[in-house]
Structure formats: structure tokens, C-alpha cells
Design a protein around this nucleic acid. Structure first.
Lengths: 109, 109
DNA sequence: TTTTTTCATCGTAATATTGCAATTAACAAA
DNA sequence: TTTGTTAATTGCAATATTACGATGAAAAAA
């Protein structure tokens, strides 16, 4: 029915899925990459950088912020965004543990 | 319009997003985890293991297969699935490169 | 104060995703 | 052949996501 049955999965499985969804869209990937590349707060140039309409970027930023992967500071009329280091490291741990499952001993067809 | 504007992003950004979407749903996370845990081909018990209806599981398996992350062998009336090792390693490389962007020197607010 | 700048929010349209009942397809077993 | 088993496919309903124009809010600039 279009709604994910989160209740039948573990918290870990739901967390992995939530984080993965965060960079499951190229616009959010591009936003995060830009924040890493600039390596400091970014005030306002994300719209021209990415090439989507301002409300669309704002929406993607909101999702990333809700997940805690970025934070935003108001500076006058503009807002400066940057990676939330601590939460990024936490997210990375969760995803890495999933990606690094042992595959070497797999006895497959 | 509900449709992602893939044409304005790089191939790398689109690839990261595609792979991330693959485990952006807890059912697919659970399927992959089970395949890793069993560490061999799995024939048929995924439906009872995960707890979703058979057509739903079949659909998630199809997505993972289309992305190349798993492969399926027909064995009589049943189908055996397992991780596609080589493609999994490739996917891991792509995601890791994205996750491991340097954050230490970030000069943030 | 008025205007401008910058970003968030609202409302809406288009498309995508999730989930399942019903059916079909392919094969094994009787 | 008929029956049973297993998994894919079809069709559909419900919900989620993506994108943007229009508008609103807040602060700086004139």
C-alpha cells in the first residue's frame, strides 16, 4: 500500500535503510559532496551549484538536517550549512558494519 | 513532477544514489543480511524469514538482482539466491569512497 | 520605511514505491 | 495426466517522493 512495514524489522535494519535513503538521491549526494569539498560552511550557493530550484534544494537540505547529517546556522539573511561531523561518523559506522559483512567464506552457486 | 533529474548529475553521483537506494528499504537490508548470515544459497525460505508476502519479496529480490547485488539459480521448482560477490565489492568501493571523504580539516560553524 | 535578499513553507502535479490478492509459469511428484 | 509446489508476473490501491511556482518571514540595505 505504499507504506513501509517498519514494525517487522529490527531497529538496526530500519536505521541502515533510513541513512541509505538519505544519499539515495543524486541531489543529496551532490549537496554532501559539495559541503565536503568546500570544507567549510556554505551560505547560499547551493542552488546555483546543484541546478535545481530553490524550494527543491531547501527540501533536500531539510531531509539531511532532520537526519542530523548536516547543520545550518543563520547568518543575517542567509543560512550556512555544513556537515555534522559527529553524526556523520556515527552514520558511517552503521553503514560500514553493514557493507563489511564477511563474504570471503561464502559458499555460493 | 516526482521524477529525479538524473541528467544534471554526474554518473558517479547517480551511481551512489542507485546503490544507496538498493539498501534504502529495511526489507532489502534484511534480505541481504540473511544472505550474508546463511553464507550460501538460499532457496525459498526468504518469505518466511522476512515476513512479507511472497510477491513483495519477489519484487525486492528483482530490484537487487537488476542492480547486480545478488544472483539467482533455478533449482527445480525453487530458486536459490546469493550475494554476487564481485559486484558487491564494486558497490562497496563506490559507497566507501563517498563515505570516507575527508572531514578532519573541516572548518565549520 | 521601503526595498531587496535569502531561505523556508505551502500547495499542487507528476511520478515512484510499497504491498498484496489473483493469476500464471515451470517443474516435480503421484 | 493430474496434482502440488515454488516463484514470477499482473493489476491495483495506498502512500511517498520529487520538483517547482507562489507566497511568506526575517533580516540587511537603501
Amino acid at each position: 500500500m505504499g507504506v513501509t512495514k517498519t514494525e517487522i524489522f529490527t531497529e538496526e535494519q530500519n536505521n541502515i535503510a533510513l541513512f541509505a535513503k538519505a544519499f539515495g538521491h543524486p541531489a543529496r549526494v551532490a549537496i554532501l559532496q559539495h559541503l565536503f569539498k568546500i570544507n567549510t560552511c556554505v551560505c547560499g550557493d547551493l542552488v546555483t551549484e546543484i541546478g535545481l530550484a530553490q524550494p527543491t534544494i531547501s527540501q533536500h537540505l531539510k531531509e539531511l538536517k532532520n537526519l542530523g547529517l548536516i547543520k545550518g546556522n543563520v547568518e543575517g539573511t542567509s543560512v550556512c550549512y555544513c556537515i555534522h561531523k559527529e553524526n556523520w561518523v556515527n552514520m558511517k559506522e552503521v553503514i560500514l558494519q553493514f557493507l563489511n559483512q564477511d563474504i570471503t567464506s561464502a559458499n555460493c552457486c
